[in-house]
Design a binder for these strands. Structure first.
Lengths: 335, 335
DNA sequence: ATGAAAGCGCTAACAT
DNA sequence: ATGTTAGCGCTTTCAT
């Protein structure tokens, strides 16, 4: 392993100059820069992250907190983060926060305390008061994606507006009996998001002068399987069946489409369905949805962090765009 | 930030003893151990990874190479790895290998050279000759999960046996016209796996004395959408339609089920379908499948790596279990 | 079993 | 613009 000394020797300069040339901090003449770069390339020199980190306090590594990985939203955000960080020359270190309190504890008391990361991105994690305190005590730039964290600048769609838009789309088509498949209370994975989305739905109904019917509101855990289950209950009784369903995730919306099919209902003739996400499966099911772009959210989060790290500006909360994508799952209500 | 000196002082011992006590290397008396542990706990002392890494050469961090994150198999393996590593006190650093050659290059020439990781796990990545050389040149423990890498001990299911089992299941039900939805040649994401799976399919047919019909063999990219597309072609012509389909991933199998439905075919009455994976959606579609457990594969990979790191044994290639899970998508062929 | 001290490979303050 | 050098916070050898 070539070290900085070897490069200095080969380039005929001091180690300080090599350090300056390679890190871009401090003044280096063009000739020295060139000599250093060539020597480094020839020797295959790469700075040791431990040594550099110890001396400078900067690790070029970002910690990412996620509740789960194996889920479209989280995995998409993570990909965006990873791609953007790599472009900046940063590593991505992953900390999965399970429900196990001991394991969670260790993340905050050990893993994040090791000085391995320069900053932290939290993807839609719900933290206890203590955990939040611990996170802030790190005294490092912090950015959230998804569920808003108290005192943490967060990137997220306007959940109320998303729901209102979806609901308004159905109302504008002539629907008035609109079912709502929201999150369930136990699902802390998407904390806060569920309630905001429900508020948007009710607001849109209210604005259209439609009364909220509690019988049309059900909850599920954001998965296709549970979406299917609750939709079957919601749609099973022909007397009370809604003419449209708004599900707060595409996976649940697809579950509802499958349930409708199994009940002999055609989508969209007998039932219109709208989801949220623009999941990769949405097109296959011709699902009308409100698009959010998690990959882009991940990249934006990195952008915010980089600016904060460079001290250019403190990160600030930020709403990201959403838009209605109309596909084949919505139409006018049956006569 | 409390440092090792503070702990030493508080515990009334030298820094060397603190280091030994906390790392479990070298002899420490029970009394010194207790004093150190208490002092460390009181001060909230956590070793600095940079300082420890620089001095010892060990980082307590593992690099994970993945081609994509947002995919059931990869995300599941990653979760398993992350969980298991955390249990061992290790961090997980993620390197996504895109198709962009410059970006890939940087992973091998920069990111992995920074001495930030003690070992590397590669999940189903296909590497060029140069990349393999670079990886081995790290001189660190290496383990693969999924697609076998030359000279890298790898954990994977026996793809031929998986396919043979799925095909034999259909044959035993009485099917002889069995369609095959395999991988496509361009799909390097799952390199090698596709061809092994096809071999197993053909072997099972041959053993049953059934001739391979090339018209029944199609390829897709492992996604539900493409599975749907190719299945429609395969099933569209009633004259040549198979009575069963074996798809080498559950997502493609589900795509085939959806295609069958849209063609007015009932599963399993008109068409039996078998997949591979035991994807989280398999149960919802009542899909018969060959289960592989990627989460467990991730955990096992960590186990192998830990043993290699501790010098207990060199990691060795290893086949992981698979088993047939019979659900409702397979039955006897129509009369 | 313990302590003193020499690095680990780099960065940054200081001097020139 | 460049070099000299003192750490960064720990581990480990060596001595005891």
């Amino acid at each position: 392993m070539a070290g900085i000394k070897d490069v200095a020797e080969a380039a005929g300069v001091s180690v300080a100059t090599v350090s300056r040339a390679l890190s871009g901090r401090g003044n280096v003449s063009a000739s020295a820069l060139a000599a250093v770069q060539q020597a480094a390339a020839e020797l295959g020199y790469v700075v040791s992250s431990s040594a550099s980190g110890l001396a400078s306090g900067r690790t070029r590594n970002i910690g990412v907190l996620v509740p789960v990985i194996n889920h479209w939203f989280y995995a998409s955000v993570l990909e965006g983060i990873c791609t953007a960080l790599m472009r900046e020359g940063y590593d991505t270190t992953l900390y999965q926060l399970s429900k196990d309190p001991k394991q969670r504890d260790r993340v905050f008391s050990d893993f994040l305390q090791r000085q391995r990361v320069d900053a932290v991105i939290a993807i839609n994690v719900e933290l206890s008061e203590d955990e939040l305190v611990a996170l802030h005590a790190l005294n490092k730039p912090l950015v959230g994606v998804g569920g808003p964290l108290p005192k943490v600048p967060t990137l997220h769609v306007d959940d109320e507006a998303v729901s209102a838009l979806a609901t308004e789309h159905l109302i504008s088509l002539g629907h008035s009996r609109i079912g709502f498949i929201g999150g369930s209370l136990e699902t802390d994975v998407d904390f806060q998001v569920p309630s905001h989305r429900r508020i948007g739905y009710e607001r849109a109904l209210a604005q259209a002068g439609i009364e909220v019917d509690p019988a049309l509101i059900v909850g599920a855990d954001f998965t296709m399987a549970q979406g299917y289950e609750v939709a079957k209950q919601l749609l099973g009784n022909p007397a009370t069946r809604p003419t449209a369903v708004f599900a707060v995730s595409d996976e649940m919306a697809i579950g509802a489409i499958l349930a409708a099919r199994d009940l002999g209902l055609s989508v969209p003739q007998d039932l219109s369905v709208v989801g949220v996400d623009d999941h990769e499966l949405a097109a296959l099911f011709s699902l009308t949805t409100i698009q959010q772009l998690p990959h882009e959210q991940g990249e934006m989060a990195v952008g915010m962090l980089m600016r904060a790290i460079r001290g250019q500006e403190p990160a600030m909360a930020h709403q990201v765009e959403h838009r209605l994508i109309v596909r084949g799952s919505t139409t006018r209500p049956p006569l």
